[in-house]
């Protein structure tokens, strides 16, 4: 099975560690991914802001880059959902029937990371070790648009040493919403403030999610307020093993200390 990593533009430029962790994790599970260097962006920002012609161009680019692969793994629920949710309609809007056909054919082979782990590789315990207190924010895309269901929780609970705390009001949006956070900064900021407050209520030292966009939003708020809670893509937690040991500058989970 030829498997490609679509790292996403955000991870490529701003969160390379998430991409690196995805590569390390998949390699440990026996999957050697390729990184087609021509890849760029899924076009979600354009799509969500209403620019379908641009989305269609980026969809065509996506098909050109990834069309030949058996599987495309994406460490992002929102970017990973784009081919299935948006590309066909974008292609129809510009009247490109060939592109519509191509994306229909490709979309089922594009997998968000946790879905790839649990459904394609059929693993829950990925051999991870993370002896820290973690809470998890189910991003809206992973919750509703391209639902990954309980998969991230199952993966997290199987991590050795982890102390997992449920996030209060977890199903509520963090307020990011792409250009929403720029066009409606006051509301976005108010939503984010509540999300950050709930994160603090858990006492967790790490906030995990499957979308770095939302983590960037919540983490930006926590950092601005001077809190030390760290945001980490779920892949970064799943990639660590006992050989890596604990993360040195994070407090140990209490569960680990009492053992």
């Amino acid at each position: 099975m030829r498997t490609a990593l679509f790292v996403t533009c955000l991870n490529d430029g701003l969160f390379p560690r998430s991409g690196q962790a995805t590569v390390k994790l998949l390699r440990r599970l026996g999957v050697e991914v390729e990184f087609p260097p021509a890849q760029s962006c899924c076009g979600q920002m354009h799509w969500n802001t209403g620019y379908r012609a641009e989305t269609a161009r980026l969809a065509a680019h996506f098909v050109k880059v990834f069309g030949e692969y058996d599987a495309v793994v994406v460490p992002s629920a929102s970017c990973g959902g784009m081919p299935g949710e948006a590309y066909e309609r974008a292609a129809e809007t510009v009247g490109d029937a060939g592109l519509a056909r191509a994306v229909r054919e490709l979309a089922p082979r594009v997998h968000e990371l946790t879905g790839f782990l649990t459904d394609v590789l059929d693993v829950e315990d990925v051999g991870a070790y993370f002896p820290h207190r973690v809470t998890y924010h189910p991003t809206c895309h992973s919750l509703r648009a391209a639902p990954v269901g309980a998969r991230p929780y199952r993966l997290l609970r199987a991590v050795a040493g982890i102390e997992f705390i449920e996030l209060p009001a977890q199903e509520e949006c963090c307020g990011f919403g792409g250009t929403f956070s720029v066009k409606n900064p006051a509301v976005s900021g108010a939503m984010n403030a509540d999300k950050a407050r709930h994160v603090l209520e858990t006492g967790a030292s790490v906030l995990a999610a499957v979308d770095n966009s939302c983590l960037m939003n919540i983490g930006g708020r926590l950092a601005k307020d001077g809190h030390t809670v760290r945001t980490m893509h779920l892949a970064e937690i799943l990639a660590r093993t006992r050989a890596d040991g604990p993360v040195l500058d994070l407090p140990h989970s209490t569960r680990e200390l009492t053992r």
Binding site: V7, N11, D12, G13, L14, F15, P16, R17, G19, Q20, V23, F35, P37, S181, V182, K183, N184, P185, A186, S188, G189, N192, A193, M216, N217, G219, G220, R221, A223, K224
Partner: peptide, 25 residues
């Protein structure tokens, strides 16, 4: 502007010196 709303309530993440693609290469 027009991005100033973002920093009203958040900081901007630092941009790492090495991108994923540069690391891969």
């Amino acid at each position: 502007k027009p991005l100033s709303g973002w920093t009203d309530s958040r900081i901007v993440p630092g941009i790492p010196k090495e991108s994923f693609r540069a690391w891969w290469e």
